[in-house]
Write a protein that binds this DNA or RNA. Structure first.
Lengths: 222, 222
DNA sequence: GTCTATAGCAGGATAGAC
DNA sequence: GTCTATCCTGCTATAGAC
């Protein structure tokens, strides 16, 4: 009842936190059905019945992973991009692209986090649960609208909003793909995803997308 | 023993074929672990033990889906792109991009097939089984090399092969994303994936990727 | 080649002691 | 809040009749 103000450790019981941490990785890696509660509690070093105690059932743990891990992480990524942009004097299209490419691929989250973060999302797209709608409504849709608002001033007034939206999706697709398909890319290119390569990838994405969007500008004014 | 040459129906027993057809859809939709043999045989309208009879066990059915459905379909898609290109007099970069964009998004396979085809692949990337190596070795790697060979003559000699490889991945990422993330795109853009929209998407991909690759050319010659 | 029956096991969830 | 013990369901795989 009485909250101590001890600084040492988080006050909240951390079995619950460990369950969220470990199950996120397992769900991302194998999918909801392929992970057993026994595996989760084993990995989180707690008792089998802890999942039911803290979350009621397995599905609710899964939903909670999105609410308490996935969405906050996306907000962190988003914040990184916003900070990057507000540190600039003037904001051009390439700054915006770089802000989001860096935020997603080289931002506040670790490489490991990034991979399971994307995998969770891909699984939801393939087989949506109620988590997908939550995530689209709370994160993806707003982010998309904000990016549109950022880019629009740099483009001709008469540019169709469909072309703009498609360009944003296209740019995001590149970013996500490099975050997601790393294993295949490494296999085909025979190239490890070390920091130097990652930085070249980000440069590549920025210039590729820039050229794409600028081309849009030309098309429209012709 | 004796094969009749009747034209009416495929000669081969078709319980096995139905199992492959139905299980591919189920595996793609829900993932290997989330689909039970009961569900598969129910969907294929055959007896529970048919999976074991024809494939030995559930995992071998899964592998067979890749061998006998996924890979042949990719070969079909690839053939479509090759046919498209060989029907042209001269082949520019935009023809090559269009050939593959059309092959993947508007080619010989149905929209439904395309979606579960991509989902199966995404699941393999997230949690590889022996199917992934088979698919990369037999299809993805060769296709990537062939595309590189097709595009190279249209680019400056001194272009680094890394930049070329990244551009190909980037272009493919756009194509795959529009094949895969249709549900999310539809949700965010409030736009159904009807044939007219799909054709605008293909045009968009071609011009976006063209501008990206041509920009590469300029960078290099500066 | 198709069926039923069942072995054998692993899963989620809960009750109740501590 | 953590533990053990247990219920019960549903799974894969196989044996053996037809």
């Amino acid at each position: 009842m009485e909250e101590t103000t001890s600084v040492k450790q988080p006050v909240t019981d951390n079995t619950r936190e460990r369950l969220l941490d470990r199950s996120e990785i397992l769900f991302a890696h194998k999918g909801f059905a392929a992970v057993s509660v026994r595996e989760i509690t084993g990995s989180a070093n707690c008792n089998l019945s802890a999942v039911n105690y803290y979350f009621g059932n397995k599905m609710n743990l899964y939903i909670s992973v999105f609410k308490e891990r996935w969405i906050p992480r996306m907000k962190q990524v988003r914040q990184y991009a916003d900070d990057y942009l507000s540190s600039r004097q003037t904001i051009g299209i390439s700054d915006i692209i770089r802000a989001f490419a860096k935020a997603f691929l080289d931002g506040p989250i670790t490489d490991e986090e990034r991979i399971y973060h994307f995998h969770l999302m891909q699984r939801e797209i393939a087989h949506p649960t109620e988590a997908l709608k939550m995530v689209v409504d709370e994160i993806i849709h707003p982010m998309h609208k904000d990016i549109r608002g950022l880019i629009k001033p740099s483009l001709p007034e008469n540019l169709s909003s469909e072309k703009l939206a498609l360009s944003i999706f296209t740019t995001i697709s590149m970013i996500l793909y490099f975050g997601f398909a790393q294993p295949v890319i490494s296999l085909v290119m025979d190239q490890k995803f070390d920091p130097a390569f990652k930085s070249r990838v980000i440069d590549h994405i920025v210039s590729f997308a820039m050229n794409g969007i600028n081309g849009l500008k030309k098309e429209e004014t012709v």
